[in-house]
Write a protein that binds this DNA or RNA. Sequence first.
DNA 1: GACTTTACTAAACACTGTTCAGTATATTTG
DNA 2: CAAATATACTGAACAGTGTTTAGTAAAGTC
Lengths: 204, 204
Amino acid sequence: MGVAERKLRAKEEMRHRILETARKLFLEKGFEHTSLRNIAEAIEYSPATIYLYFKDKNELFHALHIEGFKMMLEYMQPLTGIPDPFERLVQLSYTYIRFARENPEFYDLMFIMNAPMDALESEEKWAMGDQTFGFVVNLIEECQKTGRFQGKNAYQLAFHCWASVHGLVSLEIRQRTRVCHDEKMRACLVEDSLAYFIDAMSKL
Amino acid sequence: MGVAERKLRAKEEMRHRILETARKLFLEKGFEHTSLRNIAEAIEYSPATIYLYFKDKNELFHALHIEGFKMMLEYMQPLTGIPDPFERLVQLSYTYIRFARENPEFYDLMFIMNAPMDALESEEKWAMGDQTFGFVVNLIEECQKTGRFQGKNAYQLAFHCWASVHGLVSLEIRQRTRVCHDEKMRACLVEDSLAYFIDAMSKL
DNA sequence: GACTTTACTAAACACTGTTCAGTATATTTG
DNA sequence: CAAATATACTGAACAGTGTTTAGTAAAGTC
């Protein structure tokens, strides 16, 4: 019964091809300016075909949402080599910002846009986000083992870290750093603010 | 020549009417789900009429963008009564969060969405944002007069404050606080994180 | 009363996401 | 092998979007 398997493989391949093309177009022209018809044209199929592989545009978004988290986890991988957990936390902040800057469209999709959140009612879909957040929680807990952050809730503190760095990154991505007219200062606005945050964490 | 004046008044009134209706619909159904045709129908005019008063949808957005900042400044007004500048800064954070929670659609438009930013190439359009940001910068400078934040750049520090609070608020608005499954903890995630921030500022 | 300006609109254009009847091909069955 | 069925795909349509333009009817000016 090799036929059924071949068909299944072809089906998955097609799904993959749609996803690859979607990602390419999204990164080229941004999410707002990429339509299903654009993607369909790129893969040389009719728009209706996409609906045979994805429920709707949101499901396509969500698939990329997951891809984004996988990418981010790859960014985080090298950090496991750093022995001191607090230094690992510091480097995590830098890596997070680097990920956001190198993949602004993905960052947008993962943490700013609300479109892919609509479909995220079912629990299991949160798996990737949970895993990434869990990464931070673990890090905080390891810091606590070395005597840091005593008596603090690890989840609470992880959220605090996330929000602090996200605040910087999201303002930059959405061009709100322009309130600072001095171009030289604007260039290091995020870095300097991050330094304040890290300093505060070290004193916590 | 009262005719020209009356016409001008009527023109402004119409502009106002469109804006009021747009705001009402935006707040009712959200930005994504409000079209120019919806607005046109509500004011009982043709969609094309709106284009006689606003260059395009972005200009309409931008007008509401300004309204949002005016609202926000009103929220901030009572704070001037607080004598201690640091306490004023603390209360500013609370007020900022309250504004965001009471007017999530406006907050979205002002600080998260990128649609209205497209049109914001010309300098003068930044006036309202500048004024609000200036409010924070002044506050930091007043704190410095009482001995706080010595040797720090006021603009830099103001951005840090803004980003810290924005990080919290934007994650909440875009439903990313859901990574925390414990409902009880989720309820005070933002407040507790803000407490960390304020504590850090007091020690700076 | 004729001329011009103003305010407005119907209709179209080029898009968007989405659905569905229909078709051509591939596979299974008698 | 031929007939029946299942699969993969599409053209065309639907209902919506922002935007433009030609044309109209009323108001104001001379």
